[in-house]
Amino acid sequence: MTVQADILTENAPDMRRIERRRALFWLLPPILWFVGFMLVPYAITLFYSFGRMDYVQFVAGFSLDNYVKVLTVQPYAGLILRSAKIGLLTAFWSTLLAYPVAIAMAFYLSSECAKHILYILVILPWWASYLVKAYAWKTILGTHGLLNEGLIWLGVIDEPLTVFLYNDFSIILTLTYIFTPFAVLSIYAQLERLPLSLIEAARDLGATGWETFIKVIWPISIPGVLAGGVITFSLGFGDFIAPALLGGADSIMISSVVISLLGVANDRPLAAAIGVAIILMAMALLTVSQYLEKRTQVRL
């Protein structure tokens, strides 16, 4: 007894103090990250959005003029919607392309080696820069690009077509190409959780391949589809490189406008207001998709 009492009086380590220190150790980096990379920039953006420019100088204030402008003056609200449309189409096509790949990776490649190779093939394009990939599409889709040359060689067309490049088609195609891996990985991550025996059970109970897909695979994969959809939508929505490189005369998107507001007009407050509007939209979108993901997520 006395021995133990001695130990307690000498600087014995206190469990509670250790726990507290440990908690601080793990919490500090995320808190710093959150404050430094999210809270502060968002607060600055919000602050700017309520002010106005006087010639080249910013005047702080509290005015909703910029928001009114975003909502009522063309082209801002229209371009936010247009960008959302491009984002949605990107998400749609990415998901459509990604789904079979994810299925193949999850269920039809029995050998780990083949799975690994496909995985590398999927993420390989990420090793090349975005610009290189966008330029590659230019050389494919151009008036004298590979596609036109090929079609002429095949005798499908006599004159090169200009409809492949410098329009929304080429933007969505490029965005889809670049962002599909995100969809593949998030759908795959979800499908991978699905035990093969569920598919066998469905087949065993008499389900056709289609019924197995509709009744078992699809419902379980929805959270992955949603997650991939949110990622590809967001990336497509906010993109400004594809419209600049592969877009046509009408292919402007909201990010390009924000850039021009900062670079040409030096209208930081209006740019900030657009930013805040988009952040709010993104928060609403994420809330809805998180809710749906939760609703559809299954405990396996």
Binding site: P75, G78, L79, D250, I252, S260, N266, D267
Partner: peptide
């Protein structure tokens, strides 16, 4: 310049 840019962006947003 703000008004100019707005017109310019409107033009670009207009569908040909």
């Amino acid at each position: 310049r703000g008004a100019y840019l707005e017109i310019w962006n409107q033009v670009k947003a207009e569908t040909a």
